[in-house]
């Protein structure tokens, strides 16, 4: 792994462990990632017994060369954006560990698990109340959003 920056070295390790032992319902497009370690596409299946059973989603992770000190930029992409009170229709996710509560001890796997559990605990499929306004006015980068976090009970 010589010739890699510290962020790339860590991402390479994370990739290997995610390929070897992926959390249930999570798969990483390893061939794509190997071309560009700083941008990952991850497939996520809705867990059985939840409102998202049978659906599948795609998550995009973008990393800066300051990863893991900087949090990754994580959004849902593709044709199926989950309808969820913390997920905007443009794919942006309101989840505090992606900005304010990020820690370098977190990882792609930890973020995936957190999103799986966010989806799994959902009781009613609906968009955030401010969806229309947010999607019209937000920056392309969700990390630039000054989120006020919705209550975590949803």
């Amino acid at each position: 792994m010589a010739g890699m920056s510290p962020s790339e070295r860590r991402l390479q390790k994370e990739l290997m462990s995610l390929v070897k032992e992926p959390p249930p319902g999570v798969t990483v497009h390893a061939d794509l990632v190997e071309k560009n370690l700083l941008q990952w596409i991850i497939n996520m299946e809705g867990a059985s017994g939840t409102l998202y059973e049978g659906e599948s989603f795609q998550l995009q992770f973008k990393f800066s060369n300051k990863y893991p000190f900087d949090s990754p930029e994580v959004t849902f992409v593709g044709s199926n954006i989950p309808v969820h009170p913390h997920v905007y229709s443009n794919g942006h996710i309101c989840l505090s560990i992606l900005t304010d509560d990020w820690s370098p001890a977190l990882s792609v796997q930890a973020v995936c698990l957190s999103i799986v559990s966010m989806l799994s605990s959902c009781k009613e499929k609906k968009r955030p109340p401010d969806n229309a306004f947010y999607v019209k006015t937000c920056s392309k980068n969700p990390k630039k959003t000054k989120w006020w976090y919705h209550d975590d009970s949803v």
Binding site: P6, R9, R10, K13, E14, P68, P104, A105
Partner: peptide
């Protein structure tokens, strides 16, 4: 302490 969780080394 075996691994530094920041760099995972």
């Amino acid at each position: 302490a075996r691994e530094c969780v920041i760099c995972m080394v």
